[in-house]
Amino acid sequence: MDIGTIICGVLLFIGCFFILVASVGVLRFPDFFTRIHPAGKTDTLGQACVLIGLIFYEGFDFISLKLLIIVVFLLVVNPTATYALANAAFISGVKPWKKGDKRQ
């Protein structure tokens, strides 16, 4: 078992943990504007962790370059999609949850 495989395993574990916590957050938070926090941040980092783990497993060649392109693409696109969703909801008049309101 070489060092790349071990780093890959650790990063896969961290990434899967982040993704699971993000899903729990999407389930637990009380309204839309708080739900986009885990979906926009923790999910992005978890996915980047998993894919970077795969890069370490692969070594350096064209395939890992392709993985790197996917990582950069996800890091740019995920916040943009989150922003588009939040902006659309805000324009259409969804009110942000305040402390003390009931869950939606």
Binding site: S23, L27, L85
Partner: peptide, 27 residues
């Protein structure tokens, strides 16, 4: 990741607004 996707899918089915569902689908 499949378990995480199932959890998010629950939000997509239940989500009170269309934006919650869209968030779940994107995720």
């Amino acid at each position: 990741i499949v378990v995480a996707a199932i959890m998010v899918l629950y939000r997509g089915i239940k989500g009170p607004r269309v934006y919650d569902r869209l968030l779940a689908i994107n995720s």
